[in-house]
Amino acid sequence: MDVFMKGLSKAKEGVVAAAEKTKQGVAEAAGKTKEGVLYVGSKTKEGVVHGVATVAEKTKEQVTNVGGAVVTGVTAVAQKTVEGAGSIAAATGFVKKDQLGKNEEGAPQEGILEDMPVDPDNEAYEMPSEEGYQDYEPEA
């Protein structure tokens, strides 16, 4: 019985440690998101679009440190934060509304985080759909 109880105690310690790591990862992701939003706020009209992409990228980098179902929630929060940063930029006159959601080359930025393969159960990952990809044929 002692062996059984000791095993359960060790398992509990492992769960607590994993929860603490997840909590730490979420806190880091939130900190990076805040950094990115402050970065966007300090940019001029020309830099705002690039700044919004930076927020998304920093958040995406930190999301990889967070495991399990938390990833889905962090990704949703990050996307809403990026959308909010863009709205703030438009409201303050840093950028025109028609410039939001495009990178410096004018290509749409939507789907940055949505296409990231995420499995809350950590069982399997699927690649994003290939609808947006084109076949590449090298020139002879």
Rank of each mutant, 00 (worst) to 15 (best):
K58F: 13
S9Y: 15
F94P: 08
G86E: 07
A107S: 13
A90N: 10
G106D: 07
H50P: 04
P138N: 03
K45G: 04
K12A: 09
K32M: 09
S9C: 08
N103K: 10
K60R: 04
A29P: 00
K97P: 05
G84V: 12
E104P: 07
A76H: 09
T75Q: 13
A124K: 14
E46T: 15
G84L: 07
E123F: 07
T64E: 08
Q134Y: 11
T59W: 12
K21G: 00
G47K: 05
V70M: 09
K23M: 12
V52S: 02
K43W: 11
M1K: 00
K97N: 11
V37S: 01
V66R: 06
T22Y: 14
N122A: 03
D135V: 12
G14R: 07
A27T: 03
G14F: 08
K60V: 10
E57P: 02
D115I: 04
E114Q: 06
T33C: 03
A11M: 14
T64K: 03
N65S: 12
Q134D: 08
T33H: 02
A85T: 11
E105Y: 11
A27G: 04
A56R: 11
T64H: 11
M5T: 01
V52N: 00
A76K: 15
D2Y: 13
D98L: 14
E137W: 05
K45S: 06
D98Q: 10
S9L: 12
E57S: 07
V52M: 10
E114L: 05
E104F: 04
K60N: 01
A140D: 06
D121H: 13
T22Q: 00
G36S: 15
K12V: 14
L8E: 00
A90T: 14
A19I: 03
A76S: 06
N65L: 06
E28C: 14
G93P: 06
V16T: 08
E35Q: 04
E123Y: 10
Q99E: 05
K96A: 14
D119T: 15
T81I: 08
Y136A: 06
E104T: 14
K23Y: 11
Y125Q: 06
Q24M: 12
V49I: 08
E104A: 15
A85Q: 02
V74K: 02
P120N: 07
A29I: 15
E105R: 15
V3P: 00
P138M: 07
M116T: 10
P120M: 10
A27R: 08
K6V: 02
T22R: 01
E83F: 04
E83V: 10
V71H: 03
K97T: 07
A91I: 03
T81H: 08
K21N: 04
G31E: 06
A69G: 07
V40E: 00
V37E: 00
V66C: 08
S9A: 04
G132M: 13
A30C: 04
A53H: 09
T64Y: 10
M1L: 00
I112A: 03
Y133R: 02
V15K: 00
V71T: 07
V49R: 12
K80H: 10
G47D: 11
